[in-house]
Design a protein around this nucleic acid. Structure first.
Length: 819
RNA sequence: GCCGGAGUGGCGGAAUGGCAGACGCGACGGACUCAAAAUCCGUUACCUUUCGAGGUGUGAGGGUUCAAGUCCCUCCUCCGGUACCA
């Protein structure tokens, strides 16, 4: 008997499967189609760690099972290749980013093949290739033509560390998503996509998606729809009447407004400021402009700051004049950048009013009882008091009637606002898809329809702090003629953020070689939307929201017949290193699949990755655990070879029945667990079955046919998780011929009748405590079971002759006697 | 603060309202061996025990139920997200 030699098996089988095109996308007319997609990876120089395996191995297992189930499977892989790290490396070494990318993708691909992830490499795509980014540019123009791309020089987030502007999604919490440094505000002309136009649909269409609840919650939060009202206050300056619209979700508290606050960035701030206050206000604007949002927030924890403008605004509801302040606790980018402050019923306004000694007027009484508002704001809804004609109404009804009242009197209306901002998509960087726009003095921003706009070679990839792209230095390329009027014009020198490339790649995989369109609609309709999308949770409000947005735009343009790209989404849990920290190159605690495969083999690694715990759970790496699945594989090898040959002996009917029962139970469990993403318990079921076979190995010959059937089915259900050892044993044991492979066999079905036992053990409880166990025929009636249970000697002893008040019988499970 | 999720042995974790701790790791004992490794067999929640068994136990406290890790209420802790969004 030969010893288990995983290296030999890996060397032998990989090329054989490649020759048979095992992973080629299926195309059988009668089969259902299944599109399984992994997140578009950025090929980093660090290569793959075992953490990445938690993404790629489970999807591979699913796809292998789906193929055996009779599905056409599309499981592609490609590279989100544009981006900063390749460019940074190029800046440091002078190597072209394309070359850096080529080396890194080759390494990723090599590693994926090491653990035998079965991708259809004929469909490999690379977003930095002109054949691909031509279509990214095409979609930019689609958005442009539909009025969804525009230029603006609003404030934007800038990461000084990465020297790059960021979208709001990329700088959530004032922190750069890539390097975690604090972002600052800059004002540069940039390109935006009007994602806010789609806010309602992005929010409402989340409901029906089979996505993790937390991801949906994050998107809902991020979109942040709120229903409120805009109310126009007025300020009389010496020269004119300035309208000052404020946004509030609590119009019911408007009689309690005792001052207004404008963000320091508010456009009308200096206009309304009185001469006397001007100097101080200017100084306040200057000092707050130097702070990051994060610094403002931190500073405000010690106490909010602000300054009086000298102006007074009139509350249209009661004609009262209240002072106007500026303070940086009011955000520039939200609502109207101006608020009415109601210190009695808003914590922030309360803190501000206390600090600057502004009046506090109580106007809401929860359940009709005023709570007092000197020490603390009352934020709960209630009954309106001190509110003129509206007094006595509830908060809820007054929000409606007061908004109507404002509208009827032309000083306001009900309004819905969103937290989400437009998507800042341009980057002053080299390694990205050039934005296909030409700037002409006569015609303005003109689309370049002659695509692709090829990224030219440049001498220096270095971005500068002035906001000029490295492409700007490339004069031959920049200077062109206007496609509309023919006069000299200049190309847009910024490139698109990487998230543009990944907003449509899932469509490209359906027809990766399509040349006259971004995709072949027939192929797209055949495969999409994606049936199963798997990746980490970190893209909840970045990639996943952008991709949904582009899909809806394409739908509106009549290019697609679906509005959501990803039907089912799963997030794998993080893999924590042995030192309880995230794996990272800088911490030096990265474990690579390469070293583990050398030590234990690909099958053991694959099994461990799916067995270590629930798919979504964060789990700590344990090499001892991997050694455990390695032992499991080795035990299969030894036991199956040991029981490979039989001499005919008399059949052991009892054991045969038991074996069939265990086999059926195992097939059922493994089938249901892989389908339900419960790989860990599926593997456990296979381990249990092996334990069962192992304990009964001496009976193998007494049930030879059933034993062989058990071996065959066991290998087949194990094949997706452990492709090498199963194919080898399958051949050694003679289940398939030379040109066959276990991986194209039909997924076994369990025999339902085998799951029916003759007798079943039932526990007998007295008042919920187990006192005895009885074995009864499986189809015994409740009465029969009760009779047997009550007649047991042990039970009689416990009952001591007393007559049970009640007996509950659950056939097949238990008897509970209540004394 | 708000939103989402989770609290079960020494550890990772199992359990359609019906035998808590499957499976794996680790540990302990044994077999094999000159010895070790590997392998195989057994034990392994806690407390008590006359070794038959008895009691306790799923973050805490209440409740529903014949029966609760599972359902309901209150609270605590941890993880993730978000954070002046008016």
């Amino acid at each position: 008997m030969s010893a288990y030699n995983f290296k030999g098996l890996e060397k032998k089988w990989s090329p054989i499967w490649e020759d048979m095109d095992l992973y080629k996308t299926g195309d059988d007319q009668g089969n259902k189609n299944f599109y399984c997609l992994d997140y578009f990876p950025y090929p980093s120089g660090a290569g793959l760690s075992v953490g990445h395996c938690r993404n790629y191995i489970p999807t591979d297992v699913i796809c292998r099972k789906k193929r055996m189930d009779g599905h056409n499977v599309l499981h592609p892989m490609g590279w989100d290749a544009f981006g900063q790290p390749a460019e940074e490396y190029a800046i440091k070494t002078g190597m072209h980013p394309a070359e850096v990318t080529r080396i890194n993708t080759e390494n990723y691909k090599r590693q994926m093949k090491l653990f035998e992830a079965g991708y259809d490499w004929d469909r490999e795509i690379n977003s930095s290739h002109p054949d691909y980014y031509k279509w990214t540019q095409f979609f930019f123009l689609l958005l442009f033509d539909r009025g969804l791309a525009y230029q603006s020089d609003n404030f934007q987030m800038y990461c000084p560390q990465c020297r790059i502007v960021l979208s709001n999604e990329e700088s959530a919490g004032g922190i750069c998503w890539r390097c975690s440094s604090e972002v600052v505000k800059k004002r540069l002309p940039q390109w935006y996509f009007r994602i806010t136009d789609y806010a309602d649909r992005l929010l409402d269409e989340l409901d029906d998606l089979d996505w993790p609840e937390n991801i949906k919650a994050m998107q809902r939060n991020w979109i942040g729809r709120s229903h409120g009202a805009e109310v126009v206050f007025t300020v009389k300056t010496e020269e004119e009447l300035v309208h000052l619209p404020v946004y509030t979700t609590r119009i019911d508290t408007i009689f309690g407004a005792t001052f207004c606050v404008l963000a320091p960035e508010h456009p009308d701030l200096l206009q309304i400021t009185t001469e006397k206050c001007r100097k101080d206000v200017q100084e306040y604007i200057r000092s707050s402009s130097t702070k990051t949002d994060l610094q403002r927030l931190v500073a405000s924890e010690k106490g909010k700051t602000g300054i009086f403008t000298g102006a007074y605004a009139t509350n249209p509801f009661n004609g009262k004049e209240i002072p106007v302040w500026t303070a940086d606790y009011v955000l520039a980018g939200y609502g109207t950048a101006a608020i009415m402050a109601v210190p009695a019923h808003d914590e922030r306004d309360h803190a501000f009013a206390r600090k600057y000694d502004l009046p506090i007027i109580e106007v809401i009484a929860p359940d009709g009882v005023p709570q007092g508002v000197e020490d603390e704001a009352t934020v709960a809804d209630g009954q309106l008091i001190n509110s003129g004609q509206f007094s006595g109404l509830s908060s809820e009804e007054s929000r409606e009637t007061m908004a109507e009242f404002a509208e009827n009197n032309n000083f306001g209306k009900a309004e819905t606002r969103y937290r989400i901002r437009d998507w800042l998509v341009s980057r002053q960087r080299y390694w990205g898809a050039p934005i296909p726009i030409i700037h002409c003095d006569n015609c303005g921003a003109v689309p370049e329809r002659n695509l692709p706009v090829i990224l030219p070679d440049v001498k220096s990839y270095e971005p500068d702090d002035t906001g000029r792209s490295p492409l700007a230095a490339c004069e031959d390329w920049v200077n062109t003629t206007c496609p509309e009027c023919g006069s000299p014009a200049k190309r847009e020198t910024s490139t698109m953020a990487g998230f543009a490339c990944s907003s449509w790649y899932f469509l490209r995989f359906a027809s990766p070689n399509c040349t006259d369109a971004p995709f072949d609609i027939e192929e797209v309709n055949k495969w999409l939307p994606v049936d199963l999308y798997v990746g980490g949770a970190e893209h909840a409000v970045m990639h996943l929201i952008y991709a949904r947005f582009w899909t809806k735009v394409m739908y509106d343009a009549g290019m697609l017949n679906f509005t959501e790209p990803f039907t089912c989404l799963k997030n794998q849990g993080m893999l924590i290193s042995y030192d309880h920290q995230k794996m990272s190159k800088s911490k030096g605690n990265v474990i690579t699949p390469d070293e583990m495969i050398v030590k234990y083999g690909a099958d053991a690694l694959r099994l461990y990755i799916i067995f270590m715990g629930p798919f979504e759970a964060e789990i700590e790496w344990s090499e001892e655990g991997l050694a455990g699945t390695y032992r499991f594989v080795k035990r299969i090898w030894n036991l199956f070879l040991e029981t490979a040959d039989f001499k005919e002996i008399e059949t052991d009917e009892v054991f045969q029945k038991e074996l069939r029962y265990e086999l059926a139970r195992t097939i059922k469990k493994v089938t249901e667990d892989i389908d339900g993403f419960q790989f860990n318990t599926g593997v456990a079921a296979m381990m249990e079955f092996l334990n069962f076979l192992s304990v009964n190995r001496d009976k193998a010959a007494s049930v030879s046919a059933a034993w062989r059937k058990a071996q065959q089915d066991f290998l087949t259900v194990l094949a997706p998780a452990a492709p090498f050892v199963t194919d080898e044993l399958w051949h050694i044991l003679g289940f398939g011929g030379e040109n066959e492979t276990i991986h194209t066999q039909k997924w076994p079905e369990w025999v339902e009748e085998d799951l029916v036992k003759d007798t079943v053990e039932i526990v007998v409880q007295i008042k919920g405590k187990i006192r005895d166990r009885i074995s009864v025929p499986v189809n015994s009636s409740k009465e029969e079971i009760e009779k047997i249970a009550l007649s047991r000697e042990k039970i009689q002893e416990y009952l001591k002759g007393s007559i049970p008040r009640r007996v509950i019988v659950v056939p097949g499970r238990l008897v509970n006697i209540i004394g």
